[in-house]
């Protein structure tokens, strides 16, 4: 772990301590320990079924962990709905399949949560929404429906929608896996821009170029365990573990 960051800031934004999760009898997450400081950008990778998606979905309790502690910005995730909703307000999430609301326009997608959760007046919510839509460079699509946009545009709207809640942490669950190759770049560019502004980010992705340019740390998961954790340069050029090496040899041609 990079020493510099560990020393500068006291309380981590994300803290996972001995987290375990089971699907029925299947042990998906085994003793996950992770601490993320404010402004850190983490990339999670690993073979399919390694539990990386499950791990980040536990962070806003789309999945429930059964053992260990998860503390987000000082709030522990428990059965208490109040805590869960408080955490979800501060954590934005972007999904592999966008999950935009098809019955609402792009603008309505972006203003829904600010109005109903943050109690923001409509006019203000729309101003915020337009601000972020400009930031992801599609303000002209504001009055269209998600179904009328390309995959890359939809994913950028999804990012803007999450940003409209002004989250402290952004989670990305394979944001480019469902996109056609020519659209991957526009989404990655948006994410790089976000990283440059100092957003705390956790990203499940296989885009190694993105990991190299943006991440502070790359974490490799396999069979529900953290196998290796390192700075991107070291991770890619000099993997310490044979599982990591095997994985990298399969995804980098």
């Amino acid at each position: 772990m990079p020493e510099a960051i560990k020393q500068t800031s006291a309380e981590p934004m994300i803290l996972m301590e001995g987290v375990h999760k089971w699907y029925g009898q299947f042990h998906v997450l085994k003793d996950i320990n992770l601490s993320v400081q404010q402004g850190e950008r983490i990339v999670l990778c690993g073979p399919s079924g390694s539990g990386k998606s499950t791990a980040i979905r536990c962070l806003n309790r789309l999945e429930e962990h059964q053992q260990g502690r998860i503390i987000i910005d000082g709030t522990e995730l428990t059965h208490d709905l109040k805590h869960i909703e408080a955490v979800r307000r501060e954590v934005g999430m972007v999904f592999q399949h966008f999950n935009l609301f098809p019955h609402l326009t792009v603008l309505q997608n972006c203003t829904l949560a600010p109005m109903w959760v943050r109690k923001m007046p409509k006019r203000e919510a729309e101003e915020v929404a337009m601000h972020y839509l400009e930031r992801v460079r599609i303000p002209e699509q504001a009055h269209k429906y998600p179904g009328q946009l390309s995959g890359g545009q939809q994913q950028r709207v999804a990012i803007a929608r999450a940003l409209c809640m002004k989250p402290k942490i952004m989670l990305f669950d394979e944001p480019t896996s469902a996109l056609d190759p020519e659209m991957v770049k526009e989404v990655l560019d948006t994410m790089v821009g976000l990283a440059e502004d100092g957003m705390t980010m956790l990203c499940v992705t296989h885009e190694m170029g993105f990991a190299r340019t943006v991440a502070n740390r790359v974490i490799f998961l396999d069979k529900g365990e953290i196998v290796e954790e390192n700075e991107p340069e070291a991770f890619f050029t000099n993997p310490q573990n044979e599982r990591t090496q095997l994985f990298l040899s399969q995804i980098i041609h």
Partner: peptide, 14 residues
Amino acid sequence: MQIHTFKPDLPPPA
């Protein structure tokens, strides 16, 4: 080169 030894699967909490 390190070889990672995976932890055994545990039974879920009762």
